[in-house]
Computed example of a mutant assay.
Amino acid sequence: MVRPPKPTPAKGELSEMEKDPLSVKLEVDSFDGKIHVEWEPEASVTPMGQLPFFIQFLKTGHRFEPWINDCPLTYKSPNAPQKVDVIGSLMLSILSGHKRYAHIGTIIGDKVNAQLLGMKKIVSDDSARRGLKKIDEDEGVEWMQKHLHLCFDPLLTIPWIMDVDVTVKTIYGHQEGAVNGYNPMALT
């Protein structure tokens, strides 16, 4: 990720971060070009507010386009939706916390995030369902496993130590049936 150069304030002048950290505009790279992200303190909070940063990660990490290109979904009809629209719609729905195809309808009007991912539109739940049915199960599993491994395989070449404390830690008062340092109830 290439960060934009930080402007140096004139001598005796406060930097933008020192003035008001919420007024800083961040430049984010997307599949639709560079955009500026700015925090608006009075605006409602949305679960998709951090998505431009995730999209920048997908673009600069070269994760999204190869994932879409390798997808074994193919259409023969010129009227069929584009592969990026089908798979991208499913991804945006999952990132929104949806668990059912029908929930895609709640994001169908989201033109901004679709455009940032390089999509033309968010497809209907019927188009997404039909698209997934067209993918052979073995080919689909192979496609997803390949791209999952591409995400973590480079990390496995570096020696590391996993240090995890799995003892029970009482955080909020007393937890029913929990004993400090030992919790047999977690095994059932």
Rank of each mutant, 00 (worst) to 15 (best):
N180R: 13
L95H: 05
D32V: 02
I35S: 06
K34T: 09
N183S: 14
F152E: 03
M119I: 01
P72H: 10
V84W: 01
T8I: 09
G118A: 08
P78L: 08
V141Q: 11
S96D: 05
D20Y: 04
N69P: 00
W143L: 03
K169M: 05
H98F: 15
D20V: 04
V166L: 15
A80I: 02
D29H: 13
N69F: 13
P81A: 09
K59I: 01
R63A: 14
L148H: 09
D85K: 14
D29P: 00
L22G: 04
G118S: 10
F53M: 08
G181Q: 10
A128H: 05
E137P: 01
E176H: 12
A102Y: 12
H174P: 00
A80Y: 06
G88V: 01
A80M: 11
T60Y: 07
W67S: 01
G12C: 03
E27G: 09
W67L: 15
C71H: 08
I107V: 03
S93V: 00
S30L: 04
L132I: 06
E27M: 11
H149V: 04
Q50T: 12
S23K: 11
P7S: 15
P72E: 06
H149S: 11
L26F: 13
S30K: 04
V168P: 00
K146W: 03
L14K: 15
K76D: 14
G12F: 02
I107G: 01
G33H: 06
L95T: 02
A186V: 09
P21G: 06
V168H: 14
T106A: 08
K59N: 02
M185S: 12
A186N: 13
L156R: 08
P66A: 08
L22C: 07
W39G: 05
K121C: 10
K83G: 04
M162W: 09
A178W: 06
G61V: 02
V24E: 05
I94F: 07
R100E: 10
I107T: 03
K146H: 10
L58E: 03
K169N: 09
P81H: 10
I122F: 02
E139Q: 15
E27L: 10
E65F: 03
D163S: 13
L95A: 10
H147L: 05
R100H: 10
D153L: 11
L26E: 15
K76W: 10
A114T: 02
P52Q: 07
Q115F: 08
T188I: 11
G61L: 05
L155G: 11
K99T: 06
G118K: 05
N113K: 09
G33S: 08
D32F: 09
H147M: 01
E40K: 15
M185W: 11
E40W: 09
M1F: 11
